[in-house]
């Protein structure tokens, strides 16, 4: 039996000729909050939809709380708290009615908890959902995702479309709940500053592949920006794990994964260099739009003569 709350192995999915996911593997231990990061169209929502059994994978296997969603998606959905991006609910119902309607579908639904959340998030209980603001609507979605006390929560870009203040408020409420409940959380987003505060681990999805995953702290420790003299780099080959290169006058700013070995090499060469810690958004940027073509190379002999 798997010890992971969520496990994805070798997932592949195409829509027509377009490959959306290729060999995606991911494992989330129970109690961990993993941020699935990726640009728009990177395959985050497709991964989540496969995870919940809403669409079928072409290849690979998925297990969520030990259940295969391709076989029993209803059981998965009854155990998971799910909040989708830009989600709409029955506009003619009130939050109270929707809460009552959903209760019989979840064995663990806690009506009192739902009522408490509605109060805490200041959602008008007797106003029709169609008349709620965007922020209230997103918070209502969160209430409905959490009211059955799920041990696994999947949040697919939930704060998309909210203004910055509403996003912060939403995340604050979310953090409060997550810290209290100890649930396993898969949080997909492309807004890095949002997830940095809540994520224990990070997986970066780019072009349908997981390009990096690990705990947030380890990634921060291992991915560094190094500033070194341009002339020194001229004589050296590209370091392993190079993600991004930029030149600033006579200095070169490089971002390197598994930076410790590069730092050791530089120290051994007694070169003057600086190491800069990066924020999660800078690390993400290096992985998805970093360019290594700027690494200087010695001009060839005939070019030098010319």
């Amino acid at each position: 039996m798997s010890q992971h709350a969520i496990e994805i192995k070798g997932l592949a999915k195409s829509f027509g000729q377009r490959k959306v996911l290729e060999d995606v593997s991911l494992a989330i231990p129970a109690g961990q909050t993993l941020a699935l990061l990726g640009r728009n169209g990177a395959g985050k929502s497709t991964t989540i939809r496969i995870l919940l059994g809403l669409i079928a994978a072409d290849q690979g296997s998925v297990s969520i709380d030990g259940i295969d969603p391709a076989i029993n998606s209803t059981q998965v959905l009854s155990r998971v708290g799910y909040l989708a991006e830009d989600q709409a609910m029955y506009p003619w119902m009130t939050p109270v009615e929707l809460s009552r309607f959903l209760a019989p579908f979840y064995a663990t639904w806690d009506a009192k908890l739902a009522g408490d959340y509605l109060d805490r998030f200041e959602i008008p209980k007797l106003t029709k959902i169609g008349q709620l603001s965007k922020g209230q609507s997103v918070k209502l979605g969160l209430v409905l995702a959490l009211a059955h006390r799920p041990q696994i929560v999947v949040l697919d870009d939930p704060a998309m479309g909210l203004d910055p203040i509403a996003r912060k408020e939403f995340n604050r409420d979310l953090v409060e709940h997550l810290q209290a409940s100890g649930a396993t959380v898969l949080y997909s987003s492309h807004l890095l500053e949002e997830v940095e505060a809540v994520a224990d681990a990070v997986a970066i999805l780019d072009g349908g592949r997981i390009v990096r995953s690990g705990s947030t702290e380890s990634i921060r420790d291992e991915v560094k920006q190094i500033l070194l003299p341009f002339d020194f780099a001229l004589a050296k080959p590209k370091p392993d794990g190079l993600l991004d290169v930029r030149r600033f006058d006579d200095r070169l700013a490089i971002v390197v994964d598994k930076a410790s070995s590069t730092i050791q090499d530089l120290s051994a060469d007694a070169v003057d260099f600086d190491v800069v810690d990066l924020r999660l958004d800078e690390i993400f940027e290096a992985f998805v739009i970093g360019r290594t073509q700027g690494w200087p190379s010695q001009p060839k002999h005939d070019q030098a003569v010319a």
Binding site: L77, S78, A84, D86, A88, Y90, Y106
Partner: peptide, 18 residues
């Protein structure tokens, strides 16, 4: 029509309703 649409339909499909 509403239950088959992307928005409310998406919400409905994501609930444990066979």
């Amino acid at each position: 029509s509403t239950d088959l649409g992307e928005k409310v339909g998406g919400f409905r499909r994501s609930r444990p309703i066979p």
